[in-house]
Amino acid sequence: MNRKRCLILGASGGIGEAVVHRVIEDGYAAAVQYFTNEDKIRTIQQGIPEDQWAGSFQADLSTKEGLQAFFRVLPPEWDAVVFAGGHMYSGLFQDMKEEDMDALYYVHVKSLWMTARHVLPYMIQQKQGNIAVVSSIFGTEGASMEVAYSSVKGAQNTFVKGLAQELAPSHIRVNAVAPGLIQTKMNGHLTLEDLQALENDIPMGRAGTPEEVADAVGFLLSRSSRYVTGQILHVNGGWC
């Protein structure tokens, strides 16, 4: 059986792991990229049928050198790519160090550009393909104390919209999911009081789960969304 192949970047994070399991359920063979959490990747692999495991790639996407090393080993033949990785920076913008800005730029923007450019020749040749980006509500709304993070997520959103128009004639779809408050380690810095206050602002009254974000990604990769491209799908419980 020739399965479609999906590459998930940031697979060791909460949302990334949920996306891996979702694409496996949907019949893909999955490959994963991670930075440091090799134990999590081994655990993920143990739960995946052997014929649906397409490999793992350790790579630091926060530097130019890390990206170059990644592309030296990454095959270009993928039917779908999901960008689910990255980190945030919380603090006053004027207190940010330049190296923190550079790391956000490389992880969220430059790695997206370069990976897309790496895989697109194959997708264009095949006249089909899917690219999905896990962005953020802050990419459309912005957030105090997360100014630089908001800006790189906004860049992801406009990249999706522009690239989708360019690739539509080649039958390649490009979309994004913009989660709101999700139960992941990224929000582990919040106090219980802060978390409750945020949940009180969400019309559905709770944080979302990684699986709910992964379901949205699964929809965007599926035939059910075959006429959907260039869209930012908000998964936020009505929080905006």
Rank of each mutant, 00 (worst) to 15 (best):
Y227A: 08
E99C: 12
S151E: 11
T63I: 11
K161I: 09
A69I: 11
R3Y: 06
I202F: 02
L92G: 08
I44K: 06
A84Y: 04
A103G: 12
G91T: 01
Y227W: 12
I131T: 01
H171I: 06
I124W: 11
V107E: 14
A216W: 02
E65I: 15
I8K: 02
N236A: 02
N37L: 06
G85K: 05
A54Q: 03
I8S: 00
L198C: 08
A207E: 03
Y34D: 04
E98F: 13
E141S: 13
L195Y: 11
T191L: 02
P49K: 04
G180D: 08
K97W: 04
L163G: 11
L167H: 09
I48Q: 03
A214V: 00
F138A: 01
V160F: 03
I124F: 00
A11R: 00
N236F: 07
M88I: 13
D102G: 03
V213I: 10
G139A: 03
E166R: 11
Y105N: 12
S135P: 03
V81T: 07
T158H: 11
G91N: 06
Q33P: 02
E17Q: 15
V147W: 08
Q126R: 15
G55L: 01
A155C: 05
W53E: 05
I24N: 07
G129L: 01
R206A: 13
G27M: 10
T63F: 00
A207R: 01
Q94A: 12
G66L: 03
E65L: 14
V107S: 14
K4M: 15
L181A: 05
A214W: 05
A59W: 04
E99V: 15
F159R: 06
Y28P: 10
M186I: 04
Y34I: 00
R117I: 05
D60I: 13
F35W: 13
V73K: 14
F93N: 12
I172N: 09
L221R: 01
G230H: 04
A54N: 01
V32H: 08
T140S: 15
